[in-house]
Design a protein around this nucleic acid. Structure first.
Length: 281
DNA sequence: CGGGACGCCTGTGAGC
DNA sequence: TGCTCACAGGCGTCCC
């Protein structure tokens, strides 16, 4: 479910409210993708720092003292396909439901991961740049809004791949952040056929794709993400971007840009939506 | 090493 | 109503 915009919207909706909070207790539900990797009690008494995002991962740093910069580790969190984080302040906490698999009770509120499919994860790591966090983050490509990711760099990275451009966007090892919705939407915006081989993308077209990807992700963040089924930010608010989708989930419907109709194909066992009329190879 | 398929899980909607 | 099947926003691992 959550792609970069949903993860970033989630981060923004709780980061400033949990910072400085002391951990009171932890509750683990059913197993997630990986074990927590530490004794839950060992985190009690630690203080939350400012949550940051890398790709679709969130890193919540912890320290032994409220104002300390000395790291005592942190939690690397991923929302998988169906996960969401809620942060609720106050004393009236709802009891854990069937799909609530991680609760971090703090002095400023409860951070709760709800994840029906349990592809998500919460993993303790001594630091973001040591294992296990560093191992998980090592394969990630550039941040899409990083100025160091220039059109030249992007084009060179694409040219080195022998796969369809949609597949390369999803792989996340050139640039992170696009999942199935935003990869389809960015390619529509750039008017590029998702089946186009990476190595055949011209420099102007790859530049157009990078700009489209950035614009699509930025607009989605502004819209609060996409809520197709159950995405909510940490306040419980749904996103609105799904109604702005031009191709995703619109198979058989008319293209909003030309006379064609949106088509669904399968690439790498994932649905791809595009308009054959105006997206060119 | 890069690329593609697999599998992890549960829920939902369509079709019969 | 109830069953079966396809499909779902991700990604690490395994096998060529």
């Amino acid at each position: 479910m959550p792609e970069l915009p949903e993860v970033e919207v989630t981060r923004r909706s709780f980061a400033d409210r949990i910072v400085g909070a002391r951990v009171v207790s932890l509750r683990l539900g059913a197993p997630l993708r990986w074990p927590l990797g530490c004794a839950p009690e060992s985190l009690v008494g630690q203080f939350a720092g400012l949550a940051v995002r890398r790709g679709k991962y969130l890193w919540l740093p912890l320290s032994d003292a409220a104002a300390s910069k000395d790291p005592a580790g942190g939690l690397l969190m991923h929302l998988g396909m169906s996960g969401s984080l809620a942060f609720t302040q106050g004393d009236t906490q709802t009891p854990a439901g069937r799909h609530d698999h991680f609760d971090l009770q703090t002095t400023q509120g409860l951070l709760r991961l709800t994840d029906p499919r349990r592809f998500g994860a919460v993993v303790w790591s001594p630091a973001i740049d040591t294992a296990p966090a560093s191992t998980l983050l090592a394969r990630l490509g550039a941040e899409p809004f990083d100025a160091a990711l220039t059109p030249t760099h992007f084009h060179a990275a694409l040219r080195a791949r022998r796969t369809a451009v949609k597949t390369a966007l999803l792989a996340g090892n050139i640039v992170v952040g696009a999942g199935n919705i935003y990869a389809c939407e960015a390619l529509f915006e750039a008017a590029i056929d998702p089946r186009t081989r990476c190595e055949r993308l011209s420099r102007p077209r790859s530049e157009r794709l990078l700009a489209a990807l950035r614009a699509t992700l930025a607009r989605a963040i502004e819209a609060g993400g996409s809520t197709l089924r159950d995405f909510r930010d940490a306040h419980g608010a749904a996103g609105a971007f799904q109604s702005e989708a031009r191709v995703y989930g619109r198979a058989g419907q008319p293209c909003t840009r030309c006379a064609g109709s949106v088509r669904r194909i399968v690439q790498g066992q994932r649905s791809t939506f595009f308009c054959p009329g105006c997206q060119k190879r």
